[in-house]
Simulated scan of single mutants.
Amino acid sequence: MRPSYHPEGLFEENKESIPKSNEGILKSITQLWHLNGRCPEGTIPIRRTKKKEILRASSIKSFGKKQQGTIPEATMSTQPQSNNQSDHQHAIVNVRGDKYYGTKATVNVWKPIVQQSNEFSLSQLWIVAGSYPSDLNTIEAGWQVFLDLYGDNNPRLFNYWTRDAYQSTGCYNLRCAGFVQTSNKMALGGTISPVSAYGASQYEINFLVWKDTTRGAWWLQFGNEVVGYWPTSLFSYLADSASQIQWGGEVLNYASGGQHTTTQMGSGHFPEEGFGKASYIKNIQTVDGSNNLRSPIRVSTLAEKSNCYNVQMGNDRDWGNYIYYGGPGRNPNCP
């Protein structure tokens, strides 16, 4: 129940980065339930599912699942946009064209304001293969605020998978068979604490997903803790490798009355504001066919509504490849 190897160069890259300015100090995060101890060896933490959470879902079948059409437009290639795709707005960077066997990135954690309970705001990575809208395979991990799913507006660690573009397979966390958890220290769906504050301390977590060809699994690691794996038998295209990887934010916009939602992405501030104010993802890398961590090449950006949420790329010695992204949603330029 352990990976047979990690990507080469991983531990050298886990060293602490230098802050972009003196406005904040980079710090690690934990989960609130850790205040009450840990699970015994041989067990895993599973978040209790309550009756009221199931009742909030549109149906039992849809409970704990994403809608079809939640993938960034860059993933769809030449496929037409689905009816509900416009409800999902992204600010991401994307690489495609090679064979990818994983990704590592350090993600800044915030508590964005979400306008209504059926909307969400998240920051995540996508590992993608196949084509939309029929046989798209994805592996996803990050943090999200989603009242209808969790019952509160706290940022929570999550993962997701699908092999048919969210039609019938896959789910969040452990809400269906698929992802196999091996860690007794991290709870999928568990609250993250503390979180970053505007102009003050910044908190972040490392995410790593990589393919272990020996064991036939895609492994997930939060920080230094290996959480579990997706068996490659779950997938069609991802049984081999990924053809795209994406990093960034997504908001579900269900606001009515002809106005855009006020749901925030990331910190709720545009990327131009920089460190301590805008949300970021740094040390972005991919895993190649030789199991080495590499800087991505031919990176492109996507922001469907840049006046509402936007993304900017950068590269330097301390942060490697990074992005600032996010925004407030409704504003004078995004009515």
Rank of each mutant, 00 (worst) to 15 (best):
S21A: 11
S21V: 07
S21E: 03
S21K: 04
G24C: 08
L26N: 02
K27P: 00
S28L: 10
I29C: 04
I29M: 03
I29T: 11
T30M: 02
Q31K: 02
Q31D: 01
L32A: 06
L32F: 03
L35Y: 09
L35G: 00
N36F: 13
G37Q: 01
R38C: 08
R38K: 07
R38A: 07
C39H: 01
C39P: 00
P40Y: 04
E41Q: 05
E41W: 11
G42S: 06
I44P: 01
P45I: 01
P45A: 00
I46V: 15
I46H: 04
R47G: 12
K51R: 14
I54G: 04
L55D: 15
R56P: 03
A57T: 03
A57S: 09
A57C: 07
I60L: 14
K61H: 07
S62M: 13
F63Q: 08
G64K: 11
G64P: 08
K65P: 05
K65A: 10
K66V: 08
Q68S: 07
Q68N: 05
G69N: 05
T70V: 15
I71E: 14
E73C: 13
A74W: 02
T75Q: 10
M76L: 09
M76I: 15
S77H: 05
T78C: 09
T78I: 14
Q79V: 04
Q79E: 10
Q79Y: 12
Q79W: 06
P80G: 02
N83Q: 04
N84P: 00
S86V: 07
S86Q: 11
